[in-house]
Nucleic acid binder design. Structure first.
Lengths: 220, 220, 220, 220
DNA sequence: AATGAATGAGCGTTCATTCAT
DNA sequence: AATGAATGAACGCTCATTCAT
């Protein structure tokens, strides 16, 4: 596994919005529902459950969270949850994978060859921006993804993706003539992870702006 | 909370030794025991239980670990465990606090004024050395300390200690004329955290030596 | 209760046909339906559900069968099932009673006075024939009728019918001058039950033909 | 599967006594328990649970019986039941196998060569005697053993034992010069099964004595 | 100091049944 | 007539904790 799982959080934005924008209650017409309406209802309810589960898992640990708590937070009955997810573990798996797939998909769209200093600065800035704006989501996500239960699901996905991710930075540093580009890339990833973690744990006292400037200065 | 909880792991060494050196089975004479011997037996058994609990908690999460598992791993009966700890939560609390107290105590003995470049390099080297040598312990410790249940106990202790810890590095950077010494110190702490985390998660592929050199180069 | 509930299976033939002949999918015209057509649709769907339920009950036990399974096997929604049967127990009750009523009705039409040796031999032969030909149905039926839940419903019905059934054979043996006609009749019934059971449980190794001959030889 | 599973019930006597004789409450001394005492307590409690389970399974079906009911009937808590049996299914399995093993063990001790007419008559008489005396146990046992869940466990055991059982009677009839000894043996087994079943279902009206005489007369 | 039998609350999950559409 | 989302009670099972010995 590697540093990417905390840093480079930028890309989750879209998923996050997707996850949350639907939690508004929608009133349906009284006419018989079309299959499309059923699907829409299901999709919304599913997102609603996943959001609730993410919060409870983050606060209590996967093992410490009970299906009752999740159902209560989602405003549904315990039984209905099993209409959408085959088990508590399936619920976790779907949360993890959906986030991860969004992440990977977006990341793969980047072209490693064109990655220049401006891109670097921009991506760092955006990442820090995200961390600040979506503080609540990242707190949840980090809490979740650090748990053994979550890592279990991620472990099989990460290796294949890892090279590609590192390559972006390794190439970048190589082109800049840095001596040990891999170490440089791994340290950058680690630093981003560490910053994310420390900011999440103590957002009020962590000097995020200045640290961001320092990272750009030291790693650009 | 802050970056210190993962980085600067050096100081745990002594506690670690304390914790493990006693897990050797000792045979006692059959003659009537003195009160001192009783105390010693109690102390040893307690350490033995805590060590077992640390391992089980790390592997299974606090919530996922059962008292039965811990008792089994410690080689005692479930009932006896409650002779030493009033509850599972108390067991966790005592583990966390004992580690923490050892940490704080040792750290406070350092003199911030004498901290020079040689010390810096040395402390970083020692930290990385520890990470490598006591890999298993740190894996356990990090797994444990990242759990919400553990963080709950640490949260009340950390703030008072935080300033002192940061001061060491803030002073160091101040004396060196660095522009923003606090940001520099927090980034260093974060980087150390991130490195610890990434190395623990993938020790075989992480270029620890080179990353260590890079850190000294960038942060000295 | 008594031996009749397994033996003398001949009489179920008509009911069996009634139950199965309707499980063929029938296409209806799209023109507005007459009330009679509605009734017919209802009747057919009911038979279709009962057939599905019989199979699931037999395989899984009444308690082990779920309404979902039955609805699925019948090709309808769970909700619709409750349009035809007020509860799972009602479904079982209706299956049992319908089989039973067909059985009784047919049996009562026989005239005990005319029952001679030729009739005896014929009825035994027919019974064994049925057992072989409709093996699958009898397996289901026996599995179902041996369950406490089914016996509960049968228990109230049987006594009134018992005498009549036994009378057929008691009269027969009386006319033949057998010493204890009741015991003879009950042993015959028991033997037929036992044979049915054993054949159903192990059809490949049970020497049905020879056993049939033996029964005629010993009980005629 | 075959007829033996109901008939020839004689051999269970010892097990039955074993199962029931222990359900008397025993008071233990107040001194610390020796390991032997623990074992004894466990064995007794286990028998007590098995007896309760046999009764509930028989009345409600394996699937219809709940662990709560069994625990209640056994006078213990639900949790304790799992101290003795790893699952509800394990409980069923242990009941079935223990009965079965006792049965097989005793049966195998019989010598097929010495089996003469006196033995035959005696074994039939004893069987019928058992059925009458231990009516309650046989009712339970038959109800249990007819359930799919129980048959599942027996199925693997029976075939190897079947031949031996049949051989006893096949040899017997062969020596007597009967034409089709296998069919004769299977019919006898079936008749005994049927009689057991019918007697159990309606003990007050079934003419057990006379039927017994008839069987000896017809099958000796 | 030490055991392990015993409890009971709560877990994840299933399922008969209802109901809005 | 027909659907399937929704409920809630009860299921099998686990486990932190207690207690007699």
């Amino acid at each position: 596994m590697s540093g990417i799982f905390l840093s480079n959080i930028l890309q989750f934005k879209i998923y996050y919005l997707f996850l949350t924008k639907r939690s508004v209650k929608i009133k349906y017409s009284m006419s018989p529902r079309t299959p499309e309406q059923f699907k829409e209802i299901r999709a919304e309810k599913k997102a609603q459950i996943m959001q609730a589960a993410l919060e409870v898992f983050a606060e209590k640990t996967f093992q410490g969270a009970s299906v009752s708590m999740i159902a209560k937070k989602a405003g549904i009955s315990k039984g209905l949850l099993y209409n959408y997810f085959s088990s508590k573990e399936d619920l976790l798996k779907q949360i993890i994978w959906q986030v991860w797939n969004n992440f990977v998909e977006l990341f793969e769209s980047k072209n490693a060859d064109n990655f220049n200093e401006t891109d670097f600065e921009e991506i760092i800035k955006l990442s820090f921006d995200m961390l600040k704006t979506d503080y609540k989501f990242w707190k949840l996500y980090i809490s979740l993804v650090m748990q053994p239960a979550a890592i279990k699901f991620l472990e099989e996905k990460i290796p294949e993706f890892m090279d590609e991710y590192l390559n972006l930075y390794v190439n970048y540093y190589q082109k800049k003539g840095i001596k040990n580009p891999l170490a440089e890339a791994r340290l950058l990833g680690s630093a981003l992870d560490g910053v994310s973690l420390n900011y999440i744990l103590d957002p009020e006292n962590f000097p995020l702006e200045e640290v961001q400037r320092l990272i750009i200065e030291k790693f650009k």
